[in-house]
Each structure stands twice: as C-alpha cells, then as structure tokens.
Design a binder for these strands. Structure first.
Lengths: 207, 207
DNA sequence: CCAAGCAGTGAACCATGATTCACTTCTTCT
DNA sequence: AGAAGAAGTGAATCATGGTTCACTGCTTGG
C-alpha cells in the first residue's frame, strides 16, 4: 500500500480548509452573505472552485460553518460575562448587553450579516441556534435572579428572547447607517433598557 | 379610433390584478415567501404566468405589494390603538403590544413570513419600512409620555426599536412551534415586559 | 523509480425559476 | 362586420450561480 495520509498532509489539508473558511468569512465581513458566492470565495482563498467542494459538500454547509465561526466567539463572550458568580442578575445582564453591543458595533457589516441579513436555509438554521444560545444565556441569569429573590418569578425564556430581540433590532439600524447619537449613548440606552425591563422584585407593576 | 378603455374593462383589469395579489398573499399565508413562485401564484390566481407580468414589472414588485397589503392593516391597528388620547403612555403601549401580539398569533405562518422569513431585497426594503412604522408609532407614545412627565427623557427612537425587536423575537419561536405556555400567558408576559421596560419617571435606575 | 491514492483544477454542466414574446382572444367603436 | 387596441396565454428562453468530473500533479511507501 504505497500511500498513507500523514500528519504533514493532514495539516496541509486542514490549512486549505481553513483558508477557505477564512476567505468566506472575510467576504461576508466585507460585503455580507449576498456577496459571497462560491466562485468569489474560491478566488479570495486562492484555490479553484472544485477545491471548495473537496472540503465542503455544499455551499450551505460551508457558510453554516462560516456563520458558526463568526458567531461562537461572540456568544462565548456573552456567556462568559453573564456567568459571573456574585453580582446581582441585573448587573450581569448589563455586562452581557454591553459586551454584545460593543462587539457588534465594532464590526457593523459582519454583525448585520449575522443578525439580520437574509440567508439561505442552512445558515438560517445556524442563526436560530445562535439566538437560542443567547436566549438561554440570558435566561440562566434571569433564573438565578429569581432564585436569589432579586426578580419576581416569570417566564424567563420569553423575557430572555425579548431581550435578544430588543438588542438585535435596536442595533440593526445603527449597524448599517450610523445614527446621529454616539455609540456610547446607544450602548447606555440599551443597557438601561434591558436592566429596567427585568421584573425586579421591588418594582411595582404599573397600571 | 375603434377602441377605448372603458369603466368595465378597467374594473376587469383591476379585478385580475387584485386576484393575483390575493392569490400571492394566500400562498404566502399558507407556505411563506419561499413557497410563492410566480408560476405557483399564477396557477392559484387562475391566470397565466404572462398575465402576472402584464400587471407587475417583476416578481419583486408583486411581492412588495403583497407584503404591504398584509402589513398595512396590522400597522394601522397598532397606530390606531396607540394613538388613544387620554390614557398614560404605559397603558397605550400595553394596548398596542397586546393588539400586535394577538393578531400575530392569530395568523402564525403569515406573521412569521412577514417578521422573520428571509425574503428578496425588494420585499426586505418594505419590511424595513414596516419596522420603522412600528418604531415610530411606539416612539410617538414615548414622546408623549416624556412630555407628560410620566417618563424620563430618553432616546425614544432606540427604545421604541428595542420594543419592536423584543416583540418580534419573542413571538417568532411561538409562531412556528407553539410552546408549552398558553397564548394568554405569552401575551401577558410581553405586555408586562414592554411596560416595565419604559423609563418610568418614578422608577429608580438599578445598580 | 514506480504505483497508488489523494488534493487541486476550472471549464462545462445543470437546476431553478424568473422573464419574454409571438400569438390568440376579447372589447370597443365606426 | 371589421379594424384597432388591449388583455391574456404559456411554452421557450435566459440568467444566475451552484455543482460536477475528467484530468493534472504532488506525496508516500515499497
């Protein structure tokens, strides 16, 4: 048996695969998913179109991975920040919201692509996963807050989803066209919004 | 000059156009935008494909109109409900949120299609308009609340956008797959969330 | 060095679905 | 009735862009 894949060739293969994903990600960050066709990505990665298909079964799978690669570190940061054991729930939410917003505003095109751009079904399902991830991260904090008596018992999943949606929607406009207000003011507004939206134990239900 | 368009033929033409839009809308309500191709819509309307193009310059234009026709009455209801002159801002927001949620939950597939389904650019820009419409409706209430001293001064546009996003995101899951909780409970949670999220004058900033 | 296996190539291929257009049918008016 | 203009038809056409595959060239172990 004259040929065996070896460590070196494996590494080479992985490097190529990686170059493809990186090129695709760069393209998405530059011009969104709409601009990222297979031919464009291949050219950008310095490989032939066929090579892309040697590493990924389809365009959808490639971009699902691209989405994941862009999304995971973001989610990880939010999970990390929100998981802090000690501060009250409201503060943990505030920290998570702030981290989320700052990072999104630092890479507007990419953030828009990840949050709001129309994408094909394979990527859309990854996006759904991501949203669930954020929702669950927030919900965990809310559950902790309820357990600690800081928050009234409530439907934490729904409230967490609402927080996620609030951030996405409030950021999407500014992500594409910077609005008049400063970035700092926007972040402050959203942090405060999300904190006040929580069903604080001491808060009265209005009306 | 042997032929002149008359009232009867105009009406006939309008009726055909209307049938096409209605068929397209029905298709979207049944299976989303992804299921609504020109051929399918034409068959459903009982006309030939070419006829569609006699009434609309492109698929995008057709579906932009479909989107508008589905969206306008919804937005009108929310505007109507939120414009009530008399009740405090928080109550007006609550009424608007309740109306929005109930109507969305009454037509889940359509609501999902309108709020969250990936669509082509022409429709996406209509969607953007719609969101701005909702945001402005909410923002008007918030502005009134600030003017009346019920709410602290704040970035009402951003907060209004956040409310819109919160509703959309919190509803999208339940729209496709009914979750365990009842519809009533969901509506109640969201109404309360949106009310508490407002920067009430008497509320203290937490943390 | 040779055989075998695998990564890389890219022009050709193909699937989908929007769009066209030559033709038919209908309506109006003289 | 018949001319003219307009609406309706739907098979053929076209555009886009994802996917394939026969071929080239490199890497490995005998």
């Amino acid at each position: 048996m004259p040929y065996r894949p070896t460590e070196r060739t494996e590494a080479r293969k992985a490097a190529t695969r990686n170059a493809i994903v990186a090129a695709a990600l760069a393209q998405v960050a530059a011009g969104g998913y709409a601009s990222a066709g297979v031919q464009v990505v291949a050219r950008r990665a310095g490989v032939a179109v066929g090579t892309v298909y040697r590493h990924f079964p389809s365009k959808g799978e490639l971009f699902a991975e691209v989405f994941r690669r862009a999304a995971e570190p973001e989610l990880d940061v939010v999970i990390e920040v929100s998981a802090a054991d000690g501060p009250p729930a409201a503060e943990r939410i505030a920290a998570a919201v702030e981290a989320f917003c700052r990072r999104a505003l630092a890479a507007p095109v990419l953030a828009y692509a990840q949050i709001a751009e129309p994408v094909d079904p394979a990527v859309e399902s990854e996006r759904l996963r991501l949203r669930v991830g954020y929702r669950d991260a927030f919900a965990r904090v809310l559950d902790d807050g309820v357990a600690a008596g800081e928050l009234r018992p409530h439907d934490t999943r729904t409230v967490a989803a609402a927080l996620v949606g609030a951030l996405g929607e409030a950021l999407v406009g500014p992500l594409s066209a910077r609005r008049k207000g400063s970035k700092e003011a926007l972040v402050a507004t959203l942090v405060q919004f999300c904190q006040e939206a929580l069903p604080h134990a001491r808060a009265r239900v209005h009306a």
